[in-house]
Amino acid sequence: MVYGIFIAAAFVVIMGAIYLNRFGDVISRKSALSGAAVGTFLIAGATSLPELTTSFTAVYIDNTDIAVGNMLGSNVFNLLIIASMDVVYRRKKLFQHASARDNVPTALIGLLFTLIIIIALINPGSIELFNVGVEMVLIFVMYAVYIKLSNSSEEEKEEEQVDKDYNLKTAIYGFIGASVVVFVAGSALSISGDRLATITGMNSSFVGSFLIAAATSLPEFVAVLAAIKMANYNMAIGSILGSNLFNLQILFLTDVMYQDSAILKAVHTSNMYIAILCVFMIVVVMFNLLRTKGTGNTWMYAAPSLLVTLVYFVVSYTIF
């Protein structure tokens, strides 16, 4: 019964998030919110809503490992999506057609944030501000500054796209409806995941970091696949890196909700291994973006991404 609920909730979350992304895109293009930065924020919020509801529900049922593991695991799974797509579509050489100037700064910020989280996990006796870890406050403030600086230096670029399926009013109602669906399904996903961990004896960190994280990250997989099909490799990579930064802001909000202490004090040490895996994967992404472009063997080109994919599954098996 628990397995059925978990699978059904995961399916509903995936479908709901796909429609959130679709309606959010229409709203960002057909309303006063059509600026590039605001539109990106709206879409990022839409695709991250499954992680938000899942982690908030995990805090409510007092399962901090699922709450934190879901966020870190989603970031890792997002990077796995890019790596696996780079292997599958190795002839297209995704990273050699993406802009290092646009994507490396975002990757660097994500790397810095993840290192801060690792330090907090290694040293759980961190300073707290109103029961929120100072490291999470630092990440939130740095993200706000990064967004401000990015917006001030970014030129507005609008693409004229006409959506024939939805008008603005329909998109707004659809976005609200899909949000409610994702909220309910994400809550069911957390509760059933918690029960699944109890019944099977699996580590809650594993359930949060891999099973639930994979389910809530599948909408990003659909979005990346669509971008690759359109040969927009910059968008494929940039959307994943940007989504990962946004996910860490959800972790800050999760810490605010968890009022017993700083949330990183209350989680299993296995979450640190997920964060370290994330650092490794970000470094490889940066390497792929910065390395000299060549026309060699496609398998040689895809070797770093293949390594990332293999390491992901080895770590998954080890934690399990």
Rank of each mutant, 00 (worst) to 15 (best):
224 V>I: 10
224 V>H: 03
225 L>D: 07
227 A>S: 06
227 A>K: 03
228 I>T: 06
228 I>L: 15
229 K>Y: 15
230 M>V: 14
231 A>R: 13
232 N>C: 11
233 Y>S: 02
233 Y>A: 03
234 N>T: 01
234 N>K: 05
234 N>A: 02
235 M>N: 07
235 M>C: 10
235 M>Q: 10
236 A>R: 07
236 A>F: 08
236 A>L: 11
236 A>D: 05
236 A>G: 03
237 I>C: 04
237 I>Q: 01
238 G>W: 06
240 I>V: 06
240 I>H: 04
242 G>P: 10
242 G>N: 02
243 S>K: 04
244 N>C: 08
245 L>Y: 05
246 F>V: 00
246 F>C: 00
248 L>T: 01
249 Q>W: 15
249 Q>Y: 14
252 F>I: 02
252 F>V: 05
252 F>E: 04
253 L>F: 15
254 T>V: 15
254 T>Y: 12
254 T>A: 05
254 T>K: 04
257 M>W: 12
257 M>H: 09
258 Y>K: 02
258 Y>F: 13
260 D>E: 15
261 S>K: 09
261 S>R: 07
262 A>T: 05
263 I>Y: 10
263 I>V: 08
263 I>H: 04
265 K>Q: 12
265 K>C: 11
265 K>V: 11
266 A>G: 06
266 A>Y: 09
266 A>I: 08
267 V>W: 09
267 V>H: 04
267 V>I: 14
267 V>M: 08
267 V>Q: 02
267 V>D: 03
268 H>F: 15
268 H>P: 14
269 T>N: 08
269 T>K: 11
271 N>C: 07
272 M>S: 03
272 M>L: 12
272 M>T: 00
272 M>H: 05
273 Y>P: 14
274 I>P: 07
274 I>K: 00
274 I>Q: 02
275 A>S: 05
275 A>C: 08
281 M>R: 03
281 M>A: 00
281 M>K: 00
285 V>Y: 10
285 V>R: 07
287 F>P: 02
287 F>W: 12
288 N>D: 13
290 L>H: 10
290 L>T: 04
290 L>I: 10
291 R>E: 14
292 T>V: 14
292 T>I: 13
293 K>P: 14
293 K>R: 13
293 K>M: 13
294 G>N: 12
296 G>F: 10
296 G>E: 11
296 G>T: 02
297 N>P: 12
298 T>Q: 14
298 T>N: 15
298 T>S: 14
300 M>F: 14
301 Y>S: 03
302 A>N: 04
304 P>I: 07
308 V>N: 03
